[in-house]
Write a protein that binds this DNA or RNA. Structure first.
Length: 737
DNA sequence: AGCACGCCGACT
DNA sequence: GTCGGCGTGCTC
């Protein structure tokens, strides 16, 4: 197809500008197709852009209109559905489409570098054929034989030539010189080496009635948008349901996209899918090299990947034959990108993608987010419940320990010590959760009340005893641990407790019991993670102590006691989502207990046993908690009963940040149904030597809010001080710091 | 963002 | 006399 010279290319570029740029098509031949990449001149540089549209005329004056340099793709690297999704995302998050694309695709595609793997091929030229026919090569039998071979073979690769003759290179050189042979560079499609083993049919377990019902419901209508929530308690076998529904989709010659919050959780999931399907799923996550990521992308784009398993950016993976999306642990905060300029919720985009594509989507969780529960209540989502554990284990018993009325040793109460002793005696394993790493959260002078605080943040230094360091967990500052007070020279002492200190305490209390500590300091790489998990799984370790790291994903079948050392941080937070997060953490951690035949026990230490949130969670479980939490949200008109957008700003001076937000607020001529709140400094205003502040926009009318923002941002873009600060728009913010 | 252009201060 | 500081204007 030759494109008329008049065609205008609409090109998205990776620049922070909320518009696309018009170009004339390149003079080189080739098919101009939407979704392909072009190299274009932009100012004084050459950039790689994406063709996101074609037009027959441009409103840009002809003097400004420039010509694209080169087409980079002849066939698709981004299917039409994915591009449509990227366009929707750019408009929903009010973010430049070029930057959304840059976040969505592998880096290798962005730089315009070699998309394909190339293979050198040698073939006979027409003059070579001629020469052969005329007998001109008769005096060089080797050369003749080679040309003869090429008559029947079309082309030979270096490997093939090697087989033909050990010293083929001088031969080829001589023939090339006479123009009888030519070397061509051919792009080859790299196929992912897939280790194939026959699917183990026997490994398909018998489903529980609830699992079978869920599979049937999800598979009833496979070719239409149908959001389903799979609300399954820990151990109820959600993964088995995912695999069975995926099997139906794959049997239909379509592929399945599975999103997970973190890659550390995937090895087991990958292994289970690999075993069941006989082919390892195509994985996509940030730990891949550029080359691996490109390969995975192409594999998916060509429809060769039946199952794509990835973290949040995989929601944009090009999959022309996408038949279903599964979002595992849909409540998990990691599914939202909350750093950098482009902040998005992979779960929300996934729902949109399923809707655009007209396919089912499964949102799985033991603790669904309040938004999701709200969508169930309003009949937008269909809920399928797995209330029984597939291993028949009874639900663990949850119990509060009142720290105010108990003797305690280094933050561990008497009854917890007794419970640990009891479970260890009964050959159970004990899991202890504390969401705070390091030795102690503060270092205090015993005489002059000096506190070690981070010079770059409004935060205290955390004591890291074994490393002999003070570290800031907010900016990465580090300094040596002082032995005496730098102010008065008197003794200093660590105050409060982190996992490092608790591990010391536990070793004192249970000197003969092997203990494994899992947090970011104790476990720094994959190998250490594997070995720590192995210690627990083999039963060598009897006590497992850790942070978030142990709350997610991993199975610890022999754990019979779970202790949550301190649940109180989340109780009095100003963030409206704190309660939800706390409840989810408690339930997720509790879910690690008693997965095997033995029933589990969960102890939760608190200073506030009367707190309604804890009482509620205890008596009513997660669903009961969620119902009352939703009522509170409704009364306060917080999400999901309203929609939030935060304009966040950071600058080297607090005043600059607040001035900018105030100017932005003045520029807003917001309709009555949109409230602007603030600006206010962030709870931790100073972080890494920058001062943070935010302006909050709130409305019950999503459409109206978004229309307003479109208009407003064009004005915000013109605020002059904009160069001395950085700002981001956070649509549906996960936390309001 | 990134790059060019432009106008003022301390250097060979 | 110029090298280079970073303000500001623009990118189809």
């Amino acid at each position: 197809l030759i494109v008329p010279a008049l065609t205008i290319l609409r090109v998205a570029l990776d620049v922070p500008l909320r518009r696309v740029f018009d170009y004339l098509p390149p003079l080189t031949d080739g098919t101009v197709s939407i979704g392909a990449r072009v190299k274009v001149p932009f100012g004084s540089r050459q950039l790689v852009g994406w063709i996101v549209g074609l037009a027959d005329h441009s409103t840009v004056s002809p003097s400004k209109l420039r010509r694209a340099t080169e087409l980079l793709d002849s066939n698709s690297v981004l299917d039409a559905g994915t591009l449509a999704l990227v366009e929707w995302t750019a408009s929903y998050y009010h973010h430049p489409i070029g930057e959304v694309l840059a976040a969505a695709v592998p880096r290798a595609l962005r730089t315009g570098s070699i998309l394909n793997t190339y293979e050198q091929r040698w073939r006979i030229t027409p003059t070579g054929r001629d020469a052969l026919k005329k007998g001109l090569v008769n005096r060089a039998p080797k050369q003749q034989a080679l040309l003869q071979l090429l008559l029947t073979h079309n082309y030979l690769t270096a490997t093939a030539l090697q087989q033909f003759h050990e010293k083929w290179q001088p031969l080829a050189r001589a023939l090339t010189k006479k123009k009888w042979l030519e070397k061509i560079t051919h792009a080859v499609i790299e196929t992912q080496s897939t280790v194939t083993s026959p699917p183990l049919g026997s490994s398909e377990p018998v489903l529980t009635q609830e699992q079978r019902h869920a599979v049937e419901e999800i598979c009833k209508t496979l070719q239409q948008f149908k959001p389903v929530v799979l609300h399954g308690v820990t151990g109820s076998g959600k993964t088995e349901v995912y695999m069975q529904v995926a099997k139906h989709v794959v049997a239909n010659d379509q592929s399945v996209l599975i999103l997970v919050p973190e890659i550390s959780l995937t090895p087991q999931l990958v292994a289970r899918f690999a075993e069941r399907f006989g082919v390892a799923p195509t994985v996509m996550h940030s730990a891949l090299t550029d080359r691996e990521r490109l390969r995975a992308w192409q594999h998916a784009d060509r429809g060769q990947a039946k199952i794509v398993l990835g973290t949040r950016s995989a929601v944009f993976c090009s999959m022309p034959k996408l038949g279903m999306i599964i979002v595992d642990e849909e409540h998990d905060a990691s599914l939202k990108q909350h750093e950098g300029g482009f902040r998005y919720s992979a779960r929300d985009i996934a729902v949109r993608r399923a809707q655009q594509t007209g396919i089912p989507i499964v949102l799985g969780s033991a603790t669904p987010s309040l938004e999701t529960l709200y969508n169930i209540n309003t009949q937008r989502y269909h809920c399928l419940t797995l209330s029984r554990r597939s291993d028949q284990a009874p639900a663990p018993r949850l119990q509060l320990i009142d720290l105010k009325n108990e003797h305690q040793f280094q933050g561990i109460s008497h009854s917890v010590v007794q419970a640990i002793t009891r479970h260890l005696q009964q050959r159970g394993q004990v899991l202890i959760f504390l969401n705070r790493r390091g030795y102690a959260p503060t270092l205090l002078c015993t005489a002059c009340s000096w506190l070690a605080d981070c010079p770059s943040c409004d935060a205290k230094y955390t004591v890291h005893q074994s490393a002999e360091k003070l570290r800031c967990h907010h900016c990465g500052n580090e300094t040596s641990l002082p032995e005496t007070c730098p102010q008065c020279g008197y003794a200093v002492k660590p105050v409060g407790r982190g996992t490092e200190r608790v591990s010391e305490t536990l070793r004192t209390l249970f000197p003969d019991v092997p203990l494994v500590r899992m947090d970011r300091d104790a476990v720094t790489n994959r190998r250490e993670l594997e070995s720590a998990l192995n210690e627990v799984k083999t039963g060598n370790a009897r006590i497992l102590l850790g942070t978030q790291m142990i709350a997610k994903g991993h199975d610890f079948p022999d754990v019979t006691l779970v202790v949550i050392l301190n649940a109180d941080q989340g109780l009095f937070s100003t963030d409206f989502r704190a309660a939800e997060r706390l409840a989810q953490t408690v339930i997720q951690v509790a879910g690690r207990a008693g997965r095997a035949s033995r029933s589990g026990e969960v102890l939760l230490q608190t200073e506030y046993p009367e707190h309604p949130l804890l009482k509620n969670l205890l008596t009513e479980g997660y669903s009961g908690f969620a119902a009352s939490a939703l009522q509170e949200r409704a009364q306060a008109a917080w999400p999901p009963y309203s929609h939030l957008v935060a304009l966040r700003c950071s600058a080297s001076q607090a005043k600059h940040a607040l001035d900018f937000l105030n100017t932005a607020k003045e520029l807003a001529n917001a309709p009555k149904n949109i409230q602007l709140r603030g600006p206010v400094p962030a709870a931790m205003a100073k972080r890494a030597d920058k001062y943070h502040a935010q302006l909050l926009l709130e409305s019950t009318q999503r459409r109206s809010l978004h229309q307003f923002i479109d208009d407003w941002l064009t004005k915000v873009d013109t605020i002059p001080q904009i160069r001395q600060l950085s700002w981001v728009l956070d649509v549906d913010p996960a936390e309001l710091f």
